[in-house]
């Protein structure tokens, strides 16, 4: 009886380990600090994690496909620099042009990644490390490494505005997560992402065009990075060439913590969202407890390792009482 109950609990912990950890974390935050549960703080957590969250939604596809995309940080910066530059030059009427220009520039990078990986067979690490470095370099060349100021102030509605008290970036994150979650879990395209990530040879034999799926995924990841970059402009009315440095690794960490292993074929959009907020709440907690922000990457790294170790450990046969 008790054994059965324990093994049920263990099975639950195996499947929903991250979610349980997240719930425990949030509960203990509520219990230990009164500031955590304030409206302002919760809004802050949402606001701060939306940009990474949007990137992580795209990254989920790349990781399930068996790859990843290191260029997203550079692409985010590219979107904000291109978008901001056009908006500064053209003023308020140039806002849509800026958005379109930013998206187009990013899709070009995504298409390059996709082409290299899908048709030339370049390893995703090498391909996206390359474009990450090239794109960042081009941004420095074009801006002379100096920030762009003077985006029309009205554009900050996108980054700073709220609807019914919810920050716009968080709303955009929720929309992106809902749409991409639907695409991943309910459509044929999402199904093919799992199939190609699980067994590319078998998928091709059964008539799945693996190259087209790969190409589409890397374009999709860049689109997510473009959205994040545009929101970044909306938050600061400016663009910095150094923006979004290291975002690629935070996004990958969030996806992995959310339960998608690097080997591909596995993972869920819901897991990624939990992963994003798990890392986000830990960072917020460190902040609330007055710990130096320099500790934040330490915490992120430790959580990443703990999550992966737990995953591997539970797959190898679980705990003693299973």
């Amino acid at each position: 009886m008790t054994l059965g109950r324990w093994s049920k609990l263990a099975a639950l912990a195996r499947r929903q380990g991250v979610l349980i950890a997240f719930v425990l974390l949030v509960a203990s935050m509520f219990a230990t600090t009164s500031t955590f549960g304030t409206y302002q703080n919760l809004i802050n957590v949402l606001q701060q994690n939306s940009i990474i969250g949007i990137i992580a939604c795209g990254m989920t596809f790349a990781i399930i496909l068996g790859g990843f995309d290191l260029s997203v940080g550079s692409v985010t910066a590219l979107a904000s620099v291109v978008g901001a530059t056009i908006m500064i030059d053209l003023g308020v009427p140039g806002i849509p042009v800026g958005v379109i220009g930013a998206v187009a520039a990013c899709l070009l990078v995504g298409a390059t990644n996709g082409w290299l990986i899908a048709w030339l067979g370049v390893n995703p690490f090498v391909a996206t490390l390359g474009t990450m470095t090239v794109v960042r370099g081009l941004i420095y060349v074009a801006t002379n490494a100096s920030p762009r100021f003077g985006v029309p102030y009205s554009f900050t509605t996108l980054g700073m505005g709220r609807v019914f008290g919810v920050p716009n970036p968080a709303i955009i994150f929720l929309i992106v997560a809902a749409v991409l979650g639907f695409v991943l879990h309910r459509t044929r395209f999402g199904h093919y992402v799992y199939a190609v990530g699980g067994n590319p040879v078998a998928s091709a034999q059964m008539g799945v065009n693996a190259a087209r799926v790969r190409f589409a995924v890397y374009v999709l990841v860049s689109l997510c990075a473009a959205i994040s970059g545009i929101i970044l402009v909306g938050q600061t009315a400016s663009a910095t060439p150094q923006a979004a440095l290291g975002y690629e690794l935070t996004a990958i960490a969030a996806v992995i913590v959310g339960g998608a292993p690097l080997g591909g074929g596995r993972g869920r959009m819901g897991g990624t969202i939990v992963g994003v907020f798990l890392l986000g709440v830990v960072a917020n907690g460190l902040n609330l407890f007055g710990v130096s922000p320099f500790w934040q990457p330490v915490a992120t790294g430790l959580i990443l390792i703990a999550a992966v170790a737990f995953d591997g450990y539970s797959k190898r046969g679980g705990f003693g009482f299973v």
Partner: peptide, 18 residues
Amino acid sequence: LALAGNLAVWANVYLGRE
């Protein structure tokens, strides 16, 4: 090489013919 191990039986049967 015929099946994708991460997909359910039904998904493998219908792979490419969803």
